Computed example of a mutant assay.
Amino acid sequence: MQSRTVNPQKENVKITETNLTLVVEFVLLGFSEIPRLHWFLFGTFSVIYLVILLGNGIIILIRRAESSLQTPMYFFISNFSFLEICYVSVTLPRMLVDLWTQKGNISIFACATQMCFFLILGATECFLLAVMAYDRYVAICDPLHYPLVMSHEVCVRLVVGSWVIGMPVQVGQTCQIFSLPFCESNQINHFFCDIPPMLKLPCGDIFVNEMVVYVFAVLFVTVPFMLILGSYSRIISTILKLPSNTGRTRAFSTCSSHLIIVFLFYGSASISYLNTKSNQYEGTDKMLSLFYTILTPVFNPVIYSLCNKDVTEALRKFLPKLLAL
């Protein structure tokens, strides 16, 4: 298998009248440093993509089919599963194509489009995880008012708000990233167009742009995470006051699955986005990106099904019906 070779002076750049070399196309290096594993990675990620589609798809279907799951918590879980399918579909199919063709050429427009959708869906995931934490807070800390506070109309508004609130900001952030002068290199040492590796390419002073990235990282990552921590601190305090061990065990099992997803997603994403200037551990950055772009969507259906008795029972009823079709 041949390793990828790039000739940016001939294929992916153009010379302007002022003799500046301007990038007109990027090259995603992906996993080019391990060419012998390309086909292994292609097979592995293909299976992972199918697992994500099937696992999260089944959660969406059983929520709609089973009457026992027609509650706000499972409404949010099914929406989260749909989000995970969209989230992984922005990056993984493109990576599979690059592994298959052994090329990583991507136009500026395609790169900007991928980044924009990725940022919008990432922001949506942050807010939706916070909404799910709020749902658990109301259910455990204020159960008598839960049906009123978390009515169907409120749940729909919370989900729609999670999807919409980040759109204008992330579109603007994508525009400001791609307005930078990419005149030194066209090679992105990543498997998709993400902000941290993109900020290593521009020439000139990009201090203001980096500050904008930090501000938005705080707004869309840190603030929802702090809300989640605040909700769960109240939840844990309430659970510990429950009189019976059975009630405490059930409450902890309900919340544990959500907390696992939260720490997997927020932990890896925070390290990547708050360390945009590091060039020493780019391989580690790619591994962290695999966590919040691919592995979290894989773990989502597993955690929410294996750690949840209601979902397990619904699966036992639903799978025979599905296989009989």
Rank of each mutant, 00 (worst) to 15 (best):
S3Y: 12
R4T: 13
T5H: 11
N7C: 11
P8C: 10
P8T: 07
E11W: 11
K14P: 07
I15S: 09
E17G: 14
T18K: 15
E25S: 05
L28Q: 11
L28Y: 13
L29K: 14
L29I: 02
G30N: 08
E33G: 02
L37N: 05
L41G: 01
G43R: 05
V47T: 15
I48C: 02
V51D: 13
L53I: 14
L54P: 11
L54V: 13
L54E: 14
N56P: 03
I59E: 04
I60E: 00
I62Y: 15
R64S: 08
A65E: 14
E66L: 07
E66K: 11
E66Q: 11
S67A: 13
S67V: 09
L69A: 08
Q70A: 12
T71W: 01
P72N: 07
P72A: 09
M73F: 11
F75Q: 02
S78C: 05
N79S: 06
F82N: 00
L92C: 04
L92N: 01
M95A: 10
M95W: 01
L99K: 00
W100V: 07
G104D: 03
F109Q: 12
C111I: 06
C111W: 03
A112P: 10
A112G: 12
Q114N: 08
M115G: 02
M115N: 08
F117W: 05
L119P: 04
I120T: 03
C126K: 02
A139G: 04
C141I: 07
C141S: 09
C141W: 04
D142A: 09
L144R: 07
H145P: 00
Y146V: 00
P147E: 09
M150Y: 06
E153C: 02
E153G: 02
V154F: 10
R157A: 06
R157L: 11
R157Y: 11
R157Q: 11
V159R: 13
V160M: 11
W163T: 09
I165P: 00
G166V: 00
V169P: 00
I177K: 06
E184N: 07
S185V: 07
N189A: 09
F191L: 04
F191P: 01
F192D: 06
D194V: 00
L199R: 04
G204K: 05
V208Y: 15
A217Q: 13
V218L: 04
L219S: 12
L219W: 02
T222I: 13
P224W: 07
F225W: 02
M226K: 12
S231R: 03
Y232F: 15
I236T: 05
I236E: 11
T238W: 01
L240N: 12
R248G: 04
R248A: 03
R250I: 10
F252L: 13
T254E: 09
C255L: 03
S256I: 12
S257R: 08
S257V: 05
L259W: 14
F263N: 05
L264C: 09
F265Q: 02
Y266I: 04
G267L: 07
I271P: 06
N275S: 15
T276P: 09
S278W: 03
L290P: 10
F291Y: 01
F291W: 01
T293G: 02
I294Y: 15
T296W: 02
V302R: 08
I303F: 00
V311Y: 03
A314S: 12
A314Y: 01
R316I: 05
L319H: 02
P320W: 03
K321M: 11
L322M: 10
L325G: 06
